[in-house]
Amino acid sequence: MLSRLYKILNPPSPTESDRVDPQKRVNFGCLGAAQITPGCIVNPSRTHPSVVLYAVAARDAKRAQEFAKEHGFSKSYGGPTGYQDLIDDPEVDVVYNPLPNGLHFEWTMKALKGGKHVLLEKPATNTAAEAAQIFALAECNNLVVLEAFHYRFHPAIQRVKAILDSKELGEIKHVSAILTAPAGTAPEGDIRWSYELGGGSTMDPGCYTVNVLRYLTSSNPTAVLTAKAVPYSSRPEHKQVDKMFWATLSLEPEIIGELHSNLDEPKLFGVIPRMPKLSATIQCEKGTVEIFNFLVPSYYHYITVSPSGGRRRTEKAYTFKGTAKGEDWWTTYRYQLEAFVDKIQGRTPQTWIEPQDTIDNMKWIEAIYEKDGFGSRPTSKYIC
Protein backbone atom coordinates (compact mmCIF):
# COMPACT_ATOMS: atom_id res chain seq x y z
CA MET A 1 0.00 0.00 0.00
CA LEU A 2 2.82 2.42 0.87
CA SER A 3 4.50 1.74 -2.47
CA ARG A 4 1.23 2.37 -4.30
CA LEU A 5 0.55 5.62 -2.44
CA TYR A 6 4.08 6.82 -3.09
CA LYS A 7 3.71 6.24 -6.84
CA ILE A 8 0.31 7.97 -6.87
CA LEU A 9 1.94 11.06 -5.36
CA ASN A 10 5.19 10.65 -7.32
CA PRO A 11 4.31 8.95 -10.61
CA PRO A 12 7.26 7.56 -12.56
CA SER A 13 8.26 9.38 -15.74
CA PRO A 14 7.63 7.68 -19.09
CA THR A 15 10.59 5.68 -20.37
CA GLU A 16 12.14 6.04 -23.80
CA SER A 17 10.13 3.04 -25.02
CA ASP A 18 6.91 4.82 -23.97
CA ARG A 19 7.51 7.81 -26.22
CA VAL A 20 5.17 8.23 -29.17
CA ASP A 21 5.27 9.86 -32.57
CA PRO A 22 4.76 13.61 -32.11
CA GLN A 23 1.99 13.39 -34.70
CA LYS A 24 0.02 11.19 -32.30
CA ARG A 25 0.29 13.50 -29.32
CA VAL A 26 -2.85 15.14 -27.98
CA ASN A 27 -2.73 18.78 -26.91
CA PHE A 28 -4.99 19.53 -23.97
CA GLY A 29 -6.39 22.97 -23.27
CA CYS A 30 -8.02 23.58 -19.88
CA LEU A 31 -10.77 26.11 -19.30
CA GLY A 32 -10.24 27.74 -15.91
CA ALA A 33 -7.60 27.24 -13.26
CA ALA A 34 -9.82 24.88 -11.27
CA GLN A 35 -8.73 23.03 -8.14
CA ILE A 36 -9.70 19.71 -9.71
CA THR A 37 -7.42 20.15 -12.74
CA PRO A 38 -4.14 18.95 -11.13
CA GLY A 39 -5.72 15.71 -9.95
CA CYS A 40 -7.84 15.06 -13.02
CA ILE A 41 -5.48 16.08 -15.82
CA VAL A 42 -2.07 17.34 -14.72
CA ASN A 43 -0.89 14.42 -12.57
CA PRO A 44 -2.34 11.64 -14.80
CA SER A 45 -0.76 13.26 -17.86
CA ARG A 46 2.72 12.78 -16.37
CA THR A 47 2.57 9.07 -17.20
CA HIS A 48 0.59 9.22 -20.43
CA PRO A 49 3.10 9.65 -23.27
CA SER A 50 0.49 10.95 -25.72
CA VAL A 51 -0.89 13.75 -23.54
CA VAL A 52 0.57 17.26 -23.77
CA LEU A 53 -0.41 19.98 -21.30
CA TYR A 54 -0.62 22.65 -23.94
CA ALA A 55 -2.68 25.61 -22.67
CA VAL A 56 -4.80 26.92 -19.81
CA ALA A 57 -7.24 29.84 -19.81
CA ALA A 58 -8.58 31.88 -16.91
CA ARG A 59 -10.53 35.10 -16.52
CA ASP A 60 -7.55 36.54 -14.66
CA ALA A 61 -4.52 36.63 -16.99
CA LYS A 62 -2.06 36.62 -14.09
CA ARG A 63 -3.77 33.62 -12.54
CA ALA A 64 -3.59 31.80 -15.88
CA GLN A 65 0.12 32.54 -16.21
CA GLU A 66 0.86 31.37 -12.67
CA PHE A 67 -1.19 28.20 -13.12
CA ALA A 68 0.54 27.41 -16.41
CA LYS A 69 3.98 27.87 -14.87
CA GLU A 70 3.15 25.83 -11.77
CA HIS A 71 1.69 22.85 -13.66
CA GLY A 72 3.71 22.81 -16.87
CA PHE A 73 1.34 24.19 -19.51
CA SER A 74 3.11 25.70 -22.49
CA LYS A 75 0.70 28.60 -23.01
CA SER A 76 -1.85 30.63 -21.09
CA TYR A 77 -4.79 32.77 -22.09
CA GLY A 78 -6.43 35.34 -19.88
CA GLY A 79 -8.97 38.11 -19.73
CA PRO A 80 -12.58 38.27 -20.91
CA THR A 81 -11.79 36.48 -24.20
CA GLY A 82 -9.39 33.94 -22.69
CA TYR A 83 -11.68 30.91 -22.91
CA GLN A 84 -12.58 31.58 -26.53
CA ASP A 85 -8.96 32.35 -27.41
CA LEU A 86 -7.98 28.90 -26.15
CA ILE A 87 -10.75 27.25 -28.16
CA ASP A 88 -9.67 29.18 -31.25
CA ASP A 89 -6.07 27.99 -30.92
CA PRO A 90 -5.60 25.51 -33.80
CA GLU A 91 -3.02 23.56 -31.79
CA VAL A 92 -5.58 22.56 -29.13
CA ASP A 93 -7.04 19.09 -29.76
CA VAL A 94 -9.01 18.58 -26.54
CA VAL A 95 -10.76 20.99 -24.21
CA TYR A 96 -11.06 19.99 -20.57
CA ASN A 97 -14.09 21.74 -19.06
CA PRO A 98 -14.10 21.87 -15.23
CA LEU A 99 -15.99 25.19 -15.08
CA PRO A 100 -18.97 25.65 -12.73
CA ASN A 101 -21.90 23.39 -13.67
CA GLY A 102 -23.94 26.27 -15.02
CA LEU A 103 -21.20 27.06 -17.57
CA HIS A 104 -20.69 23.49 -18.80
CA PHE A 105 -23.27 23.72 -21.59
CA GLU A 106 -22.13 27.03 -23.07
CA TRP A 107 -18.42 26.29 -23.17
CA THR A 108 -18.76 22.68 -24.25
CA MET A 109 -20.95 23.75 -27.16
CA LYS A 110 -18.43 26.45 -28.09
CA ALA A 111 -15.58 23.94 -27.91
CA LEU A 112 -17.46 21.50 -30.16
CA LYS A 113 -18.21 24.28 -32.63
CA GLY A 114 -14.46 24.97 -32.58
CA GLY A 115 -13.74 21.38 -33.58
CA LYS A 116 -12.42 20.20 -30.20
CA HIS A 117 -13.05 16.98 -28.32
CA VAL A 118 -14.24 17.63 -24.77
CA LEU A 119 -13.54 15.99 -21.42
CA LEU A 120 -16.43 17.39 -19.41
CA GLU A 121 -16.62 17.41 -15.64
CA LYS A 122 -19.67 15.93 -13.96
CA PRO A 123 -22.49 16.67 -13.82
CA ALA A 124 -22.41 17.33 -17.54
CA THR A 125 -25.03 20.07 -17.56
CA ASN A 126 -27.88 21.55 -15.52
CA THR A 127 -30.54 19.66 -17.48
CA ALA A 128 -30.98 16.48 -19.49
CA ALA A 129 -32.09 18.52 -22.51
CA GLU A 130 -28.79 20.39 -22.51
CA ALA A 131 -26.84 17.13 -22.31
CA ALA A 132 -28.78 15.81 -25.31
CA GLN A 133 -27.89 18.92 -27.34
CA ILE A 134 -24.19 18.51 -26.53
CA PHE A 135 -24.05 14.92 -27.74
CA ALA A 136 -26.10 15.69 -30.84
CA LEU A 137 -23.59 18.36 -31.86
CA ALA A 138 -20.65 16.08 -31.01
CA GLU A 139 -22.04 13.31 -33.20
CA CYS A 140 -22.72 15.75 -36.04
CA ASN A 141 -19.11 16.98 -35.91
CA ASN A 142 -17.60 13.51 -35.33
CA LEU A 143 -16.16 14.59 -31.97
CA VAL A 144 -15.84 12.85 -28.61
CA VAL A 145 -17.41 14.12 -25.39
CA LEU A 146 -16.95 12.23 -22.14
CA GLU A 147 -18.63 13.06 -18.84
CA ALA A 148 -15.87 12.57 -16.27
CA PHE A 149 -17.34 10.01 -13.90
CA HIS A 150 -13.79 8.85 -13.27
CA TYR A 151 -14.64 6.08 -10.77
CA ARG A 152 -16.32 4.08 -13.55
CA PHE A 153 -12.94 3.44 -15.19
CA HIS A 154 -11.30 1.82 -12.15
CA PRO A 155 -11.09 -1.95 -11.67
CA ALA A 156 -12.71 -1.77 -8.21
CA ILE A 157 -16.21 -0.68 -9.23
CA GLN A 158 -16.04 -2.90 -12.31
CA ARG A 159 -15.23 -5.87 -10.07
CA VAL A 160 -18.33 -5.16 -7.99
CA LYS A 161 -20.45 -5.06 -11.12
CA ALA A 162 -18.89 -8.31 -12.36
CA ILE A 163 -19.86 -10.03 -9.09
CA LEU A 164 -23.43 -8.78 -9.45
CA ASP A 165 -23.64 -9.68 -13.14
CA SER A 166 -22.40 -13.21 -12.43
CA LYS A 167 -25.58 -13.83 -10.38
CA GLU A 168 -23.44 -15.47 -7.70
CA LEU A 169 -25.75 -13.81 -5.17
CA GLY A 170 -28.92 -13.89 -7.27
CA GLU A 171 -30.96 -10.90 -8.33
CA ILE A 172 -30.42 -7.44 -6.87
CA LYS A 173 -33.12 -6.34 -4.45
CA HIS A 174 -31.83 -3.17 -2.78
CA VAL A 175 -29.00 -0.68 -3.33
CA SER A 176 -27.84 1.94 -0.87
CA ALA A 177 -25.34 4.59 -1.98
CA ILE A 178 -24.00 7.34 0.25
CA LEU A 179 -21.45 10.07 -0.38
CA THR A 180 -20.70 12.80 2.14
CA ALA A 181 -18.12 15.56 2.53
CA PRO A 182 -17.09 17.23 5.80
CA ALA A 183 -18.08 20.81 6.56
CA GLY A 184 -15.69 23.23 4.92
CA THR A 185 -15.28 21.21 1.71
CA ALA A 186 -17.40 23.89 0.06
CA PRO A 187 -16.83 27.02 2.17
CA GLU A 188 -19.16 30.01 2.35
CA GLY A 189 -19.34 31.69 -1.06
CA ASP A 190 -18.23 28.56 -2.95
CA ILE A 191 -19.73 28.09 -6.43
CA ARG A 192 -21.34 24.88 -5.21
CA TRP A 193 -23.76 26.98 -3.16
CA SER A 194 -24.86 29.05 -6.16
CA TYR A 195 -28.19 28.10 -7.72
CA GLU A 196 -27.43 30.12 -10.87
CA LEU A 197 -24.19 28.17 -11.35
CA GLY A 198 -25.85 24.80 -10.87
CA GLY A 199 -24.95 24.27 -7.23
CA GLY A 200 -26.35 21.89 -4.63
CA SER A 201 -25.54 18.58 -2.99
CA THR A 202 -27.61 16.56 -5.44
CA MET A 203 -25.59 18.06 -8.30
CA ASP A 204 -22.21 17.54 -6.64
CA PRO A 205 -21.72 14.38 -4.53
CA GLY A 206 -25.30 13.35 -5.23
CA CYS A 207 -24.76 12.89 -8.95
CA TYR A 208 -22.33 10.08 -8.10
CA THR A 209 -24.94 8.26 -6.03
CA VAL A 210 -27.44 8.42 -8.88
CA ASN A 211 -24.78 7.19 -11.28
CA VAL A 212 -23.53 4.29 -9.19
CA LEU A 213 -27.10 3.11 -8.57
CA ARG A 214 -27.82 3.04 -12.28
CA TYR A 215 -24.45 1.49 -13.16
CA LEU A 216 -24.52 -1.39 -10.69
CA THR A 217 -28.13 -2.32 -11.46
CA SER A 218 -27.73 -1.91 -15.23
CA SER A 219 -31.07 -0.18 -15.03
CA ASN A 220 -32.73 3.21 -15.01
CA PRO A 221 -35.19 4.15 -12.28
CA THR A 222 -38.89 3.96 -13.00
CA ALA A 223 -39.95 6.48 -10.35
CA VAL A 224 -38.71 8.68 -7.52
CA LEU A 225 -40.74 7.36 -4.60
CA THR A 226 -39.54 9.81 -1.95
CA ALA A 227 -37.15 12.74 -1.88
CA LYS A 228 -36.18 15.23 0.80
CA ALA A 229 -33.55 17.95 0.84
CA VAL A 230 -32.26 20.52 3.31
CA PRO A 231 -31.29 24.01 2.10
CA TYR A 232 -27.78 25.31 2.64
CA SER A 233 -29.08 28.25 4.64
CA SER A 234 -32.26 30.14 5.39
CA ARG A 235 -31.29 33.01 3.10
CA PRO A 236 -33.58 33.52 0.08
CA GLU A 237 -30.78 32.85 -2.44
CA HIS A 238 -30.32 29.38 -0.97
CA LYS A 239 -33.94 28.23 -0.93
CA GLN A 240 -33.27 25.96 -3.94
CA VAL A 241 -29.68 25.02 -3.02
CA ASP A 242 -29.53 21.77 -1.05
CA LYS A 243 -26.68 20.89 1.29
CA MET A 244 -27.97 17.33 1.72
CA PHE A 245 -30.62 15.09 0.21
CA TRP A 246 -32.22 11.67 0.62
CA ALA A 247 -34.14 9.86 -2.10
CA THR A 248 -35.78 6.48 -2.64
CA LEU A 249 -36.17 5.24 -6.20
CA SER A 250 -37.72 2.18 -7.79
CA LEU A 251 -35.98 0.29 -10.57
CA GLU A 252 -36.88 -2.78 -12.59
CA PRO A 253 -37.11 -5.60 -11.80
CA GLU A 254 -38.35 -4.91 -8.23
CA ILE A 255 -35.24 -3.05 -7.05
CA ILE A 256 -35.27 -0.25 -4.48
CA GLY A 257 -32.46 2.30 -4.39
CA GLU A 258 -31.77 4.58 -1.43
CA LEU A 259 -29.47 7.55 -2.00
CA HIS A 260 -27.97 10.13 0.33
CA SER A 261 -25.40 12.86 -0.07
CA ASN A 262 -24.22 15.67 2.18
CA LEU A 263 -21.90 18.43 1.00
CA ASP A 264 -21.59 19.98 4.45
CA GLU A 265 -21.55 17.28 7.15
CA PRO A 266 -21.12 19.06 10.51
CA LYS A 267 -18.09 18.47 12.70
CA LEU A 268 -18.34 16.03 15.58
CA PHE A 269 -18.84 17.94 18.82
CA GLY A 270 -18.42 21.03 16.68
CA VAL A 271 -14.63 20.62 16.34
CA ILE A 272 -13.71 17.21 14.88
CA PRO A 273 -14.11 16.86 11.08
CA ARG A 274 -16.04 13.77 10.10
CA MET A 275 -14.59 11.18 7.75
CA PRO A 276 -16.32 11.12 4.36
CA LYS A 277 -18.78 8.30 3.76
CA LEU A 278 -18.08 6.72 0.37
CA SER A 279 -19.90 3.42 0.15
CA ALA A 280 -22.39 1.42 -1.85
CA THR A 281 -24.17 -1.64 -0.44
CA ILE A 282 -26.07 -4.04 -2.67
CA GLN A 283 -28.47 -6.57 -1.16
CA CYS A 284 -29.27 -9.54 -3.36
CA GLU A 285 -31.42 -12.65 -3.06
CA LYS A 286 -28.52 -14.73 -1.73
CA GLY A 287 -26.28 -12.24 0.02
CA THR A 288 -24.75 -8.77 0.09
CA VAL A 289 -21.89 -6.91 -1.60
CA GLU A 290 -20.44 -3.72 -0.18
CA ILE A 291 -17.72 -1.49 -1.62
CA PHE A 292 -16.03 0.99 0.65
CA ASN A 293 -14.61 4.05 -1.14
CA PHE A 294 -16.02 3.55 -4.61
CA LEU A 295 -15.16 7.18 -5.39
CA VAL A 296 -11.33 7.12 -5.13
CA PRO A 297 -10.51 3.42 -4.69
CA SER A 298 -6.93 3.79 -5.93
CA TYR A 299 -5.89 5.06 -2.50
CA TYR A 300 -7.63 2.30 -0.56
CA HIS A 301 -10.82 0.30 -0.85
CA TYR A 302 -12.32 -3.04 0.00
CA ILE A 303 -15.13 -5.13 -1.45
CA THR A 304 -16.96 -7.33 1.04
CA VAL A 305 -18.97 -10.25 -0.34
CA SER A 306 -21.30 -11.90 2.20
CA PRO A 307 -23.20 -14.91 0.82
CA SER A 308 -26.22 -15.92 2.88
CA GLY A 309 -25.16 -18.88 4.99
CA GLY A 310 -21.70 -18.84 3.41
CA ARG A 311 -18.26 -17.54 4.25
CA ARG A 312 -17.68 -13.81 3.90
CA ARG A 313 -14.71 -12.71 1.80
CA THR A 314 -12.93 -9.44 1.12
CA GLU A 315 -11.57 -8.51 -2.29
CA LYS A 316 -9.52 -5.63 -3.66
CA ALA A 317 -9.03 -4.67 -7.30
CA TYR A 318 -6.33 -2.19 -8.23
CA THR A 319 -5.61 -3.59 -11.69
CA PHE A 320 -7.44 -5.54 -14.38
CA LYS A 321 -6.61 -9.17 -15.00
CA GLY A 322 -5.43 -10.16 -18.44
CA THR A 323 -4.35 -7.73 -21.12
CA ALA A 324 -6.15 -4.55 -19.99
CA LYS A 325 -3.93 -1.54 -19.38
CA GLY A 326 -3.09 -0.25 -15.91
CA GLU A 327 -0.83 -0.29 -12.89
CA ASP A 328 -1.86 -0.72 -9.27
CA TRP A 329 -0.99 2.93 -8.59
CA TRP A 330 -3.09 4.30 -11.46
CA THR A 331 -5.75 6.60 -10.09
CA THR A 332 -9.32 6.64 -11.33
CA TYR A 333 -8.37 9.76 -13.31
CA ARG A 334 -5.43 7.97 -14.92
CA TYR A 335 -7.64 5.09 -16.03
CA GLN A 336 -10.15 7.63 -17.33
CA LEU A 337 -7.48 9.52 -19.26
CA GLU A 338 -6.31 6.29 -20.88
CA ALA A 339 -9.82 5.49 -22.06
CA PHE A 340 -10.46 9.02 -23.30
CA VAL A 341 -7.28 9.18 -25.38
CA ASP A 342 -7.94 5.68 -26.74
CA LYS A 343 -11.38 6.82 -27.87
CA ILE A 344 -10.30 9.99 -29.65
CA GLN A 345 -7.43 8.14 -31.35
CA GLY A 346 -9.74 5.47 -32.71
CA ARG A 347 -8.90 2.64 -30.31
CA THR A 348 -11.46 0.73 -28.27
CA PRO A 349 -11.30 1.89 -24.62
CA GLN A 350 -11.46 -0.61 -21.79
CA THR A 351 -14.81 0.88 -20.79
CA TRP A 352 -16.84 3.90 -21.80
CA ILE A 353 -19.71 6.12 -20.67
CA GLU A 354 -22.17 6.40 -23.52
CA PRO A 355 -24.05 9.63 -24.29
CA GLN A 356 -27.42 8.18 -23.27
CA ASP A 357 -25.94 7.24 -19.90
CA THR A 358 -25.07 10.89 -19.26
CA ILE A 359 -28.46 12.11 -20.47
CA ASP A 360 -30.31 9.61 -18.27
CA ASN A 361 -28.27 10.56 -15.21
CA MET A 362 -29.27 14.19 -15.62
CA LYS A 363 -32.88 13.15 -16.17
CA TRP A 364 -33.04 11.44 -12.79
CA ILE A 365 -31.20 14.21 -10.98
CA GLU A 366 -33.89 16.54 -12.29
CA ALA A 367 -36.58 14.07 -11.21
CA ILE A 368 -35.21 14.04 -7.64
CA TYR A 369 -35.18 17.84 -7.57
CA GLU A 370 -38.76 17.89 -8.84
CA LYS A 371 -39.85 15.46 -6.12
CA ASP A 372 -38.19 17.30 -3.23
CA GLY A 373 -39.44 20.68 -4.49
CA PHE A 374 -36.05 22.32 -5.06
CA GLY A 375 -36.48 22.27 -8.85
CA SER A 376 -33.98 21.75 -11.67
CA ARG A 377 -31.00 24.04 -11.95
CA PRO A 378 -31.58 26.92 -14.42
CA THR A 379 -31.20 26.36 -18.13
CA SER A 380 -28.24 28.09 -19.74
CA LYS A 381 -28.91 31.44 -21.38
CA TYR A 382 -26.45 30.57 -24.15
CA ILE A 383 -28.14 30.53 -27.55
CA CYS A 384 -26.68 27.97 -29.94
Rank of each mutant, 00 (worst) to 15 (best):
L9D: 04
N10S: 08
N27H: 11
F28M: 05
G29M: 01
G32E: 02
S50Q: 14
G72T: 03
F73D: 00
P80K: 13
P80D: 11
D88V: 01
W107M: 10
M109V: 13
K110D: 03
G115S: 07
H117M: 01
L119P: 00
T127S: 14
A128Q: 07
A131F: 02
A132H: 09
Q133E: 15
L137V: 10
C140H: 14
E147L: 00
H154G: 05
K161V: 03
L164K: 06
K173R: 15
S176M: 09
I178N: 12
L179D: 04
P187N: 05
W193F: 10
S194T: 02
Y195S: 08
E196R: 12
G198F: 01
Y208L: 11
V210R: 04
V210H: 11
L216P: 03
S219I: 03
P221T: 07
V224K: 02
P236E: 07
H238F: 06
K239V: 03
V241I: 12
W246T: 14
T248Y: 01
L249N: 04
S250D: 09
E252P: 14
G257V: 04
L259E: 06
P266F: 07
L268Y: 08
L268P: 00
K277Q: 11
L278N: 10
I282P: 00
E285I: 03
I291V: 12
N293D: 13
F294W: 14
Y299M: 12
H301S: 04
A317T: 09
Y318D: 02
Y318H: 10
T319S: 09
L337P: 03
D342E: 11
Q345P: 00
Q345G: 02
R347K: 15
P349H: 04
I353S: 11
I359N: 04
M362N: 13
M362W: 04
S376E: 05
Y382A: 10
